[in-house]
Design a binder for these strands. Structure first.
Lengths: 211, 211
DNA sequence: TAGATTGTTAATCGATTAACAATC
DNA sequence: TAGATTGTTAATCGATTAACAATC
């Protein structure tokens, strides 16, 4: 049953991985898959797969399993990959440039529309055909180009102020690479990518595993 | 009590954030903090803070709280930030270059020693003073330079084979940006950074929150 | 000492796994 | 129909929160 109750972030966090494996099965020309088969490939329990999927509806068929292609499409739709998202990047440093140049995001409907940077020397230059603009133009650009996601690849010093400005002009979500916790209203979404935190976790796990 | 039982990844995942906030308090010259004060700043329960810290030892003092600087040092030590890690990057594309150029990792003891790429045209060039080497030299370099972490910033096609080669020559952990699940022995650690998964999660949360 | 705050046990909550009736 | 596999309820497990005795 499709419930109105909010889905837990643990479940949401697993959807992209289901999506990826189903895409691979699809590419291999496989038409159907049971939760048990998927369980073997993905190394999660079949029970969890069925529970997770049933949060969104009964996509399977008793005695048969799941149709790979339609389940793939359904999960894509749930994740909003059938819709276009318009993005801006704030901070045209190495990381910002790397993200703009990564083509796969566009394939999934995430389109970089604008790049902003505080550094006058790179304003006016182009990254993959997109002009780097001064920070002053940010608000007008967001409002005028239906931007819903801002990617923050700036040092943490400026991030809070920039986030505030973006909230004020109607941004819906942040993909935050700045090493700081944004405080935004409840209806604005934040997805953090704290690279150094991730590396520290790896460091811990390596050390704790030396016998 | 310092227990022998394994600490849950949920707890480990929160340590870098404690570390960051304690560093900020330290920089502000604040000497002591109670779990309640930290709770207010970090927006987690004081109970969780005390539980988390007590996995590693009694760092606090009843009636007083925690000494900021020594707690900061302790968490750094737990995360292994007092030790040096030697890293190689496999894949000198935009993302690989961005990571090499990000100075803050070195500050924490993560030193990039070598860069490898399959593309002959960039082999021999330098990125922040580090020569890009051909893939054939990888094993010898890892063995000869006490490399413990490999950063994979290559397309998923090559990642499994590269990972296997690196396991064979004694790597201890992977920081994996390739969009594929590595299968490695239990004593090898993998920390995934699946950027597109993260972006999909943001997309879901934005859509599910449109009223 | 009195007050404050930890360390730790107990209670609660939520997520995962197991089991099985429903059904294709 | 018989066999297979889902959808879903119940049981278990683990993580978070609350409570409070220990103690600085």
């Amino acid at each position: 049953m499709v419930e109105d109750r909010e889905i837990s972030q643990a479940v949401i966090g697993r959807l992209p991985r289901y999506f990826r494996y189903l895409g691979e099965l699809k590419d291999q020309g496989i038409e159907r898959v049971s939760s048990q088969e998927l369980s073997d490939i993905m190394r999660v329990t079949a029970s969890q797969i069925r529970q997770d999927l049933n949060n969104f509806g009964g996509f399977g068929q008793q005695g048969y399993g799941y149709k790979v292609e339609s389940l793939y499409d359904e999960i894509g739709r749930i994740l909003g990959l059938d819709k276009e998202h318009n993005l801006i990047i704030v901070g045209a440093g190495h990381l910002g440039q790397a993200l703009v140049n990564y083509m796969n995001f566009e394939r999934r409907g995430f389109i970089f529309r604008g790049i902003f940077d505080i550094d006058e020397r790179i304003q006016g230059t182009q990254i993959r055909g997109i002009t780097v603009r001064p920070m002053e133009e940010m608000e007008e650009f967001v409002r005028g180009n239906d931007i819903d996601i801002a990617v923050l690849t700036i040092p943490k010093t400026g991030a809070l102020e920039v986030a505030e400005r973006l909230v004020a002009c109607g941004i819906r979500g942040f993909w935050n690479f700045a090493h700081v916790d944004l405080h935004v209203p409840d209806n604005i979404q934040v997805e953090n990518v704290h690279l150094s935190d991730s590396l520290m976790k790896l460091s811990y796990n390596i050390l704790s595993h030396i016998d």
